[in-house]
Design a protein around this nucleic acid. Sequence first.
DNA 1: CATGAATGAGCCTTCATTCAT
DNA 2: AATGAATGAAGGCTCATTCAT
Lengths: 190, 190, 190, 190
Amino acid sequence: MRHKDDSKREAITNAAIELITTAGFADTSMSKIAKAANVSPATIYVYFENKEDLLNQLYLMVKREFSEAMLAGFHDSLSVEAGFKLIWENSCRYMLAQPTRFAFSEQFANSPLVNRVSREEGSGYYQPVFSVFERGKREGIFKDISLDLSIAFFYAPLMLLVKQHYSGDIVFDRELQQIVFEITWDALTI
Amino acid sequence: MRHKDDSKREAITNAAIELITTAGFADTSMSKIAKAANVSPATIYVYFENKEDLLNQLYLMVKREFSEAMLAGFHDSLSVEAGFKLIWENSCRYMLAQPTRFAFSEQFANSPLVNRVSREEGSGYYQPVFSVFERGKREGIFKDISLDLSIAFFYAPLMLLVKQHYSGDIVFDRELQQIVFEITWDALTI
Amino acid sequence: MRHKDDSKREAITNAAIELITTAGFADTSMSKIAKAANVSPATIYVYFENKEDLLNQLYLMVKREFSEAMLAGFHDSLSVEAGFKLIWENSCRYMLAQPTRFAFSEQFANSPLVNRVSREEGSGYYQPVFSVFERGKREGIFKDISLDLSIAFFYAPLMLLVKQHYSGDIVFDRELQQIVFEITWDALTI
Amino acid sequence: MRHKDDSKREAITNAAIELITTAGFADTSMSKIAKAANVSPATIYVYFENKEDLLNQLYLMVKREFSEAMLAGFHDSLSVEAGFKLIWENSCRYMLAQPTRFAFSEQFANSPLVNRVSREEGSGYYQPVFSVFERGKREGIFKDISLDLSIAFFYAPLMLLVKQHYSGDIVFDRELQQIVFEITWDALTI
DNA sequence: CATGAATGAGCCTTCATTCAT
DNA sequence: AATGAATGAAGGCTCATTCAT
């Protein structure tokens, strides 16, 4: 009996993310993925149940990668300020370093193709971020607003700017990043 | 000779927006649109070149509607504060009143299916908003940051919260709106 | 607008019956049918909902053709003997003249692929045969047995022999037909 | 070296007959058979050349089982009447007791998937039945008709009625069996 | 202008079979 | 002998678009 070949699985996921990001999910056929991964179309079905399952697994993979990058170097002994800045900069750096992953993630942020289960599992990765905000509120540093609001002002402008960076509308360099971080801090702190 | 029938055109666009918003662009076939609009598939091609052209025209239509709603009651004699608040509230009200339009707009905000031309024409509608920000900077009310940054903090959190409102994660009522407006003001003013 | 083309529908049904009879339903692909009918695969779906619907419509068509042939020249004023013989001979003649239709009919006599509705509509065509048996019983000519039994002895041996004729095991000529008819008569009459 | 494992072979054949009878040959994949038999798909190919070979071996197996049941208790010293009745009742009893085997047998009675060789080998099992008919003719009990005709009137109505019994159209109980036997006897005897 | 018929291309998926262990 | 991985071929069906009226 042959063993399952991890390199095949990886070739498939890489090809899939690349193609889906470029052309969209609907215009990325299983055949095209197979061809790009140097594999038979049928082989994809050895590793994934169907096209939707493939997408959901990719989504979780990308989300996990992102959350890991975002939390690199983070631990609870950090001060709120330090932790907040670390997470913001990790996020920013990763988004700028991984155009494909970022674009993929954006594309399915609100897609009905990603099922509830995957989405919930995906959002579970952000737990540590939530705690920083809670601590910041308790310590009287942050405004006393709901978590959802905090997240909205923390991530939404950043992500929009990264998108504009990729579309060539702006150059999101270190200097600009610093400014954005300061506005964000301004917005959320008392 | 009969002229092109505006009621037919409208039936098609309405059906298309509704279906595309609900099921996604790829899963909305021209036949389904035709059926929903009580029209033959071939008739769609009398009014639109092809599926992509249809999408681009829908996109522009929705963008224009939104910009009109957003600028209702606005004129240059308003103070920066008044104009800023008017535009923010108009935007917020419209997004909450027009779920379908809003969802449609979001769906294609970053889609490669909407071509550069349409996107640029669409963003042209926002000129008056830009001037308010410029005036605010000149008058020393707003921070001296680029337009893109201003827009990012003005719209991105708002839109994210509206999305969460529609997905049922939060209730974006008047009280919350007031808070969000204040944070936004905080973020952008000196 | 083009009109639906009856010659296309007919080409499809003929090709389908021919192929299905020869190779079986499962081994007859829609593409093969299309090719044999000189038509695009998609065209079949203009006339039939799907492969199963095609089969059911073919089944009904063949059943109706058979029942019409079987009842040719029949009317109620005929005596039981005359009517019985007419129907038997019509049946026999048609089965031997239409190998393809006969084989097709046999193939789906007990197939779950033909749905209940089609089957019931199909068996409705045999009403006049049933009345002859009823009359025969009332007039004291036939044994007092249920309709199902009568039908079983009337048709089953005949059909088996026709099959053997086609498979080359026997030659079902006029002489043999006469003998079979007599045995059948013997079996059913008092 | 291990020997081929008879219990595996049996598991495969049982699973295959069950599945094929229920779902049809075309809709029974080798994988499904393998799964039902708790075996790898590749293992089936240790025992059978390919799917068609599997079918032919199943066909022969079922035919042999049926002929054995049909001839249980039969020996040449029985009178024609006794032998005839024994075979008829054995056949009837077996068909009613073994729905799956009966259905399987019927399904491939006229299928092009069973090859000529298997079919001929299968029909060889009926030799003793043939001799009874021959003796009956020689002894002046049966009509002087060909073997094929005798078989046709002996089996065809019976099998049709069993099918109707299974489909729920009739209840083929002892009483009805007795009647059918009598009609059969009537039909075949002088 | 308006339309239903017609279509070739392509999609997702399954399958019988072979491979490599 | 036994097996799970791997695969090329094929299947049913849908679609955006064009045709012919």
